[in-house]
């Protein structure tokens, strides 16, 4: 039953949502329409997703709580994670329900001056890794590597304003690479993914693929 019930729910919900995409008007002549049905199902989906966020927070606390209790290597990072999570949740919930201008400013400032700059810093660090990695990896050791190297240089020059100053054709060739060469490859991949996605969806709906239900 633990596997059959989720399979039936998946099948019924999936079929109803597919039907609501193609059908309009009332269901079986009643007041309940296909549009309302679709809307209700997606409402449930939003509720389930909101609960999933809560479960993720509980899971995170459990995993890192164990790490702190057993003082495993890196447990200091776990303390920082749990601490900031608790503070953010506490300020966020308080602000949402009993918020004043002060608590709103506190919550926004925590985001503006802690989370946002930290995220931006992580993004910026990538530039340094990319610089070092491209210097080491882009060697014209074979015909394929040479093509990749030339394409990379052209795209870098095409996307930076200085490229057009150095040679006016850099943006033109860059656009051609993006619009023709890249497009041909992307379209092929997209079509393949779409067909694969459809096949995978049908397998899940029909209960052939049961990976999402976890192990027995």
């Amino acid at each position: 039953m633990r596997r059959e019930v989720p399979l039936v729910i998946t099948f019924v919900i999936g079929v109803l949502l597919i039907a609501s995409y193609f059908l309009q008007g009332p269901i079986l002549g009643g007041e309940y329409t296909w549009k309302t049905l679709s809307s209700d199902i997606t409402n449930w989906g939003v509720l389930v997703s909101a609960f999933a966020v809560g479960i993720a927070a509980v899971n995170l606390t459990r995993i890192h709580g164990n790490k702190i209790t057993n003082q495993r290597p890196g447990f200091i990072n776990s303390i920082a994670l749990i601490g900031t999570m608790v503070i953010f949740i506490a300020v966020g919930v308080f602000n949402k329900h009993f918020g004043t201008a002060g608590t709103r400013a506190l919550f926004q400032n925590m985001f503006d001056y802690i989370l946002s700059p930290l995220g931006a810093a992580m993004f910026a660090i990538i530039a340094f890794y990319v610089a070092s990695a491209s210097y080491r990896a882009f060697r014209a050791r074979s015909a394929e590597a040479t093509m990749l190297l030339i394409a990379a240089i052209i795209m870098m020059m095409a996307s930076a304003p200085i490229g057009a100053l150095i040679w006016s054709k850099f943006p033109v060739i860059g656009k051609w690479l993006l619009d023709v060469v890249n497009m041909a490859g992307q379209r092929g991949i997209r079509l393949g993914v779409a067909i694969g996605g459809f096949a995978a969806s049908m397998r899940i709906l029909l209960g052939i693929d049961r990976g999402h239900l976890g192990s027995e």
Binding site: A131, Y135, R136, A140, S159, I162, G163
Partner: peptide, 20 residues
């Protein structure tokens, strides 16, 4: 960004010239 790209390209060229 322009100067950053130029520097990366410079390093790539130096690496390849030395390699050849």
């Amino acid at each position: 960004q322009s100067l950053g790209h130029l520097l990366i390209i410079g390093f790539i060229i130096v690496g390849n010239v030395a390699y050849f």
